[in-house]
Design a protein around this nucleic acid. Sequence first.
DNA 1: GTCTATACCATGATAGAC
DNA 2: GTCTATCATGGTATAGAC
Lengths: 201, 201
Amino acid sequence: MSTEPKLSFKQQQLIVRENAIVDATNNLLAKKGFDLMTMDEVAAEVGIAKASLYKHFPSKEALAAAAMIRLLENTLAFVRGLAADQPAISQLKNVLQWALEIRMKGGLPTLPAENTSLRDALLNNPRYISRLMDLNELMGELIEKAKAEGSIRKDLPTEVVLFTVYARSCDPTLDYLRMGDQYSDDQVIHFLLTTCFDGLH
Amino acid sequence: MSTEPKLSFKQQQLIVRENAIVDATNNLLAKKGFDLMTMDEVAAEVGIAKASLYKHFPSKEALAAAAMIRLLENTLAFVRGLAADQPAISQLKNVLQWALEIRMKGGLPTLPAENTSLRDALLNNPRYISRLMDLNELMGELIEKAKAEGSIRKDLPTEVVLFTVYARSCDPTLDYLRMGDQYSDDQVIHFLLTTCFDGLH
DNA sequence: GTCTATACCATGATAGAC
DNA sequence: GTCTATCATGGTATAGAC
């Protein structure tokens, strides 16, 4: 896209390498969570020495934050790319479905569910907070549009709807339903979507 | 209750001590989660030496399991004590409300939400599994009764409803809504209940 | 069964040569 | 910027005296 592709080979290699590091972090974070993920594992999965990791990222927290920030930016791009002529409720459902599909493929949940040190670290990361506020803003607008269109209950504060959708994206129900492997991935996603938006009644 | 209260002083003291240990574990587990909870902290909160812990419980996993089992047994007692003449849907809501109130008071969520080593340990604990299956059975009956009474959608498998309710009891939305401290505890619980059963539409 | 003291190990992080 | 080698910390678990 850029009109200035004149990055030196070294710089390009650096970017590729750092992407690989963040990829590995992403996988391990999804699989084991922040606390159980070790820098040794990340290094092993990338195929470099642990010390080299620290040349790219100053700490474990910073590394995890980089992965979460990339995920948030992908989410932002997805939300911005939604067809604006669709009903707002469809757009919201698309976002949640997309997030659940990522998790199904072994990706990260959009939000840290746990009461962990990662959440603390992220809340102190200005870049992360900035992206999160952008996403909250966009989603908040969608939710209010959906309210105006009569497809979201008006007695629920927008904030409550927002967190409810976020929470659904990291819902352990997905894991539990998959364990029984009685349902296909698509069915599980359908159940999560309909229980979220339509309720149990 | 028992007609044989003839426990020696020593045995009674033992029970009291073990209860105190499980209490401390419960609190720390709720506050920091399994991985970040250390045996030093537990010992310090009880006021005994760390080595003494290991005379009561053979490992950290066993200690955490004891706390989770006690919680499950309390939950079972609550469910069994529900007024059976109430509509099944009211009973279900009462269970979820009760679980959320416990969390509000700093207690544990009924189910481990996280992809953590604790979950693995619990799944290998026969006593825990036994209690969990008892609870699943009772809750499953309630859900099917509610379906028959027309207050739960019949197109949702009972299993899906069950996990959805469980997931709600450890929903991070509770934490996030409390952070903004814009709503009272009762309001937060009301939001969680209504979004779960009535949905967002 | 409780304590003090300690063995043992995994992990986050760093030093220094190339 | 990558490597090998190492440190420092903190955590699980145990030994042995009382």
